[in-house]
Structure formats: structure tokens, C-alpha cells
Design a protein around this nucleic acid. Structure first.
Length: 571
RNA sequence: CGGGGCGUAGCGCAGCCUGGUAGCGCGCCUGCCUUGGGCGCAGGAGGCCGGCAGUUCGAAUCUGCCCGCCCCGACCA
């Protein structure tokens, strides 16, 4: 295509509203424009890039025997009421009424619709297994849309659903997806990792997330460089680093001491001259209206996900200051477990076996020393804390690391959650009714583009992987006024097209600097510069990522690019 | 939803405190000039100053309400 005829509205300056790299660059490079919070226009370049991503996803899904469908985004309330998610989804779901006053919603995911199809059409074990998928727009009224395309209210998702006779069948469907996802993300040129994930609102037993490490990410992943263990921080387990000071020996009894004005763990540590690891941190949560005292080692952080699992509800919040005074007779900063009888006490595993620690005395400005879990108070022990860098891997003892990451895909073993509640039944070989087991699997299409931009951006713009770039090569005649250059560029352009290379001819009557800057900005992987050296029959082949320049014969330029592109796409 | 910030030309910003009818850079249009990293010169177009109400002789500027956007926290592809 000819640049002079295309709509590629590049910007010289960073738009004020953009904070993260991918957001700035997608706007500056003319890929996207914002319409409202979390709602974007995908302009010409973005559409081309997303089309390529979609095509790769489609090929790999088809390759595992998945069948593409297209389901309506507009859903009747009834099916969501049936699964119970009409209420559960709360404000995250866009809802509307039709002219007759019937409730409708915009689909945020399609378990319900797929399950309805399965219920109506699947009757026999002979029809299973099935894998159905679609690539379709999803709507979620996010509490806080963010960071350009990272977190939006309308986005494209590849979602697939598997139906199997038994858990072994589900294992296979899950593994097929796992492998397909690896191929998809590799082909898209991403450096990614698969991590164990929390199953969240989806329910189900096993789940992996596919992550691209990036400072712009919204998730944290824990990795063990030694054995390869990796998990989302929400899910990750680790062995805590040992306490920084040994516990005092002996069968000591709790003993109150004055700590005037010392409220935080750090202040008490400084005052007592003992490390934070010697303290018991006391947090008060209110779960389903009931107070719960949560105990952690002083230097540890509460994982709300693990806490939710421990109390069996996600309906919880930190206690209000008045409630705390009411229940404890003291304020936050002087709380502890000793003598607490009016609420459930949960303690993190890192406190198990510890002796003679420091805790709040439930009296303002006083703490206790010599507090021993299990002797001076009773608690239920479970894993409640976030893994932290410096912890040891539970598998191999290696030191774990934490990194921020962008979630690009997620696979779940759903189990019977939907097939059961919505009544999918098929007859097995013995003629008995059984409920199929399900899995569901998602990929955020825009997130692949976003992650690629984040991963490969430099000071001049994006440097997209060939497989997902909107064009493979841009041909840039330096001086259009020079007939020889103009004609050579035209010729190379034609030869590229003939060789199956997606070429963009920058035939704009602009100064060379403008063309170079724009080409760099929009991230086309290769550039052929037709300039002065044409007099010697030569042109330049510039690789966007890394900016290496090679001189090639003008006559060979198209072939050189074609070879490189082929090599890249094989990746 | 809680907390913080912002809204003036297509983009980036100044003006607002101390009211007097809007300015800069980039981009855009025309002409000349130039052509290897966002050239130069000359001329020009473009703004209900987010909206509504109030104060005032007079409001971008002061007051109130509303709307929108961004960032930080609880959700997820």
C-alpha cells in the first residue's frame, strides 16, 4: 500500500492522558484513538495488527480440533439468572432493557450461552468431546479502565469451551489448550511464561495464566529460577525467609510492657531493638459481617485471595476503627491475639512453631512479649500471606523472584459448575445420564498487541514482531524528487508484493527525517531505504529492532526481505 | 466506590491568584526553497476557554452544581 493514501495519524508529542509506554505509542503511532474511558477506536494499523493476531489464534485453535462459532454479545437475562451470575457479576456487567422491558446484558464471557447450546444439542457420549470457540467482542464495565488497551470495557477475546465425558477427557482438552497457547504466543513473538493461577470467580480446580513480564503489568508472578516453579502471586506458596533473630528460649509467660506512641510494626521493632520478624502482626477483617482476627509475621503481607479462600467468602473488608475499639478495647497498633475470645482467629503458617514473640496487648500503648502461638492463644493455621522476594521455593529451596506481568491468556478446568447448574446431560455407553465436565480458555487479543509494544519499545517507538506487525517492510525513497530513487522504490515495492511480503511504500512528499521517524514509530520490522547509494546500485536494509543496517543490491532487496520475513514467521 | 489531579485550536501547553472578551510551540492550508533523521522563509485558516446556573456594568478568570478524562487502591483477558 501507498502511505500517501493511508490514514496513519502519527503524533509528534506524547498525549497527556497516556502514562504507560504502550498507551503512548499506540496513540502516537496512530493505531488507536480513545472514544471514552476504556473504549477505543482501532484505526487502520491496529486493525491490521489485530487481524494478524486473530489469524494466528484461529489457526492454532483449529489445529487442536476446536470449532469456531460466533455467539451473540447481546444476551437475555434468563440464562445468566439460571447460572446465578446475573447477581454475582454485579456492576461489572452492562445491563439494558428491550422495548418490552425485558432484561438483557452484554456478554462478558460465554459459559452460559455455550452451555445452553450444549444442553439443547448434546445428547450422547458419542458426540463428545467437543471444543467450541469464538473470537468476539466482550463487554465489562470495569471499575477502573486503565493504561490504554491494557484494561478496557470493550475488547476482543478468543474464548473456548470444552465438553468431555470425564476428568481424563478434560485433562486432554486442557493440555491441548496449554500447548496451543504456547504456540500462539511464540508465533506472536512474545516472551511469555505459564504460571499456576488462582481460579477466582470462575470456580474450578486447575488454572494457568499466560504472562508477559513487564513493568506495565497489573499482576505479580513468583518464579523460582532454579526449578522453574512459577505462579501468580495470588496463588504462589513459598517458604518464608527465616526470622532475623532467634526466639527467646523457655516457657515464658506473656508480659506487658509500655510502648508509648509506637503503633506500626516498624516503630515497635525500633523501640524493642528486635527485628520485624519477631513480631505478630494483627489485622482485623470483617467477613460476611463477622469479625476475624488475622495474624501474620511482622514482615509479611496479607493475601486477600488466600484470606478469601480461608474464610470461604469474598465478602470481606478491613474493620473500621470504631469497630476495632469496640471489639478490642484498644486501637489498631496495639492489637494482639492474647485473651481474644469473641472472634475467629486465623494465623499464617509462618507463625506455627514460633515462641515468645511480641504482639499488641489490646491496651493502647502497650505490647506483650513472650507470646507463643498455641499456648497463649489458639488459632487456625493456614497459608495467608503473599510470597515475598527472598523467600525460598517450596519445591527446591531456591530463592524466588517477583516480577510484574501482563496477563494475556488464562485456562481453567471448570468442572461441573455450569453443566450441572444448567442441566447438561448426555447418555453414556450404558445408557445412563451423566453430566459432561467443562473447561474454559481465554485469550485477550488486544493484550497480545499491548504486551508486544511494551516488550519491544525503544526511544523511537515500537518494534513489533514480524508476525503481528501491520506491514512487514516499509520502502522509503529518501528524495521523491529524484526520479531514479522514485522508480527504484516502486520496483522494489512491486517485487516485495510479488514475493508475498506485505510492503508499505512511503511515497509521501515529506522530508527524509519525517519518514524515518514515522517508520520507526509505527514499528514496521524492516525498512528499505532508497537513497544516495542507488547510484552504485545499492539500497539499505534496516532492521527496526536493534537498528542494524545492511547494504544490499537494489535488485536483491525484495528477495532479502522476503527471506528474513519467512525466517521470522517460522519462529 | 474512596483518595489525588486535570478539562483553553487537531496535539502539547501558558493565561486564571490580582475579572476588561485569548496567546505560544507543533501540526494544518498557500507559495517559494530544501531533500539521509521531525529543514528554512513568507502569508493564512482554525477556539461556544467541558456544560449549566449564579455574582458583576463586564467572567476563560470568582462561586455553586453537573459532566468528562487521567492516576493510586478492591476486579480480570
Amino acid at each position: 500500500m501507498r502511505w500517501s493514501r493511508l490514514f496513519i495519524p502519527t503524533l509528534r508529542e506524547d498525549p497527556a492522558e497516556a502514562e504507560v509506554i504502550s498507551h503512548k505509542l499506540l496513540l502516537r503511532a496512530g493505531y488507536i484513538r480513545q472514544l471514552a474511558a476504556g473504549i477505543y477506536n482501532y484505526l487502520f494499523l491496529a486493525r491490521r495488527s489485530l487481524n494478524r493476531i486473530v489469524q494466528i489464534v484461529r489457526e492454532e485453535m483449529d489445529a487442536i480440533g476446536a470449532q469456531e462459532m460466533l455467539l451473540p454479545a447481546l444476551n437475555p437475562a434468563e440464562i445468566w439468572q439460571e447460572s446465578g451470575r446475573w447477581e454475582i457479576m454485579g456492576n461489572d456487567m452492562f445491563r439494558l432493557k428491550d422495548r418490552n422491558g425485558h432484561d438483557l446484558c452484554l456478554g462478558m464471557t460465554h459459559e452460559e450461552v455455550m452451555t445452553v447450546i450444549a444442553r439443547n444439542e448434546l445428547h450422547s457420549y458419542k458426540q463428545l468431546p467437543q471444543i467450541w470457540y469464538q473470537i468476539q467482542t466482550k463487554f465489562r464495565d470495569e471499575p477502573r479502565p486503565r493504561s490504554g488497551l491494557m484494561r478496557v470495557r470493550q475488547f476482543i477475546m478468543k474464548d473456548s469451551y470444552s465438553f468431555d465425558m470425564d476428568a481424563a477427557g478434560l485433562d486432554q482438552a486442557y493440555q491441548k489448550h496449554y500447548d496451543a497457547y504456547c504456540r500462539i504466543f511464540s508465533r506472536c513473538g512474545l516472551q511469555y511464561l505459564a504460571v499456576e493461577a488462582h481460579t477466582g470467580a470462575m470456580g474450578g480446580s486447575l488454572s494457568h495464566e499466560f504472562m508477559v513480564k513487564s513493568p506495565a503489568g497489573e499482576d505479580w508472578v513468583v518464579e523460582c529460577p532454579k526449578c522453574g516453579y512459577s505462579a501468580n502471586l495470588e496463588k504462589a506458596v513459598s517458604r518464608p525467609a527465616p526470622p532475623q533473630a532467634p526466639d527467646p528460649e523457655g516457657d515464658l509467660s506473656p508480659e506487658e510492657f509500655h510502648t508509648p506512641g509506637r503503633k506500626t510494626i516498624a516503630e515497635v521493632a525500633e523501640f524493642t531493638n528486635l527485628p520485624e520478624t519477631s513480631q505478630i502482626k494483627s489485622l482485623v477483617m470483617v467477613a460476611k459481617g463477622e469479625p476475624v482476627l488475622v495474624l501474620l509475621r511482622g514482615d509479611h503481607q496479607l493475601s486477600e485471595t488466600k484470606f478469601a479462600a480461608a474464610v470461604g467468602t469474598s465478602d470481606f473488608r478491613p474493620a473500621h476503627p470504631e469497630e476495632i475499639v469496640n471489639w478490642f478495647g484498644a486501637s489498631a497498633g496495639s492489637l494482639g491475639p492474647v485473651g481474644v475470645k469473641n472472634m475467629r482467629i486465623l494465623a499464617d503458617l509462618a507463625l506455627e512453631g514460633r515462641r515468645n514473640m511480641i504482639a499488641g496487648a489490646n491496651r493502647d500503648d502497650y505490647h506483650l512479649r513472650h507470646v507463643t502461638p498455641g499456648e497463649d492463644f489458639e488459632a487456625q493455621f493456614s497459608d495467608l500471606r503473599h510470597a515475598a522476594s527472598g523467600d525460598a521455593c517450596v519445591e527446591c529451596g531456591g530463592e524466588i523472584t517477583l516480577s510484574k506481568a501482563i496477563e494475556i491468556g488464562h485456562i481453567f478446568k471448570l468442572g461441573y459448575r455450569y453443566s450441572d447448574s444448567m442441566g447438561v446431560r448426555v447418555l453414556n455407553a450404558e445408557g445412563k445420564e451423566v453430566t459432561p465436565i467443562m473447561g474454559c480458555y481465554g485469550i485477550g487479543i488486544e493484550r497480545i498487541l499491548t504486551a508486544a509494544v511494551e516488550l519491544y519499545a525503544d526511544a523511537d517507538g515500537m518494534a513489533l514482531p514480524t508476525a503481528i506487525a501491520p506491514f512487514h517492510v516499509v520502502i522509503t525513497p529518501v528524495n521523491l524528487g529524484d526520479a531514479a530513487q522514485r522508480e527504484a522504490a516502486e520496483k522494489i515495492y512491486q517485487e516485495c508484493l510479488d514475493a508475498g511480503v506485505d510492503a508499505l511504500l512511503d511515497d509521501r512528499d515529506e522530508r527524509p527525517g519525517v519518514k524515518f521517524k514515522d517508520a520507526d514509530l509505527i514499528g514496521i520490522p524492516y525498512r528499505i531505504t532508497v537513497g544516495k547509494k542507488l547510484a552504485q546500485g545499492k539500497v539499505e536494509l534496516v532492521t527496526r529492532r536493534g537498528k542494524q543496517t545492511a547494504e544490499v543490491e537494489a535488485a536483491n532487496a525484495a528477495r532479502c526481505v522476503a527471506e528474513r520475513v519467512q525466517l521470522d514467521l517460522r519462529g
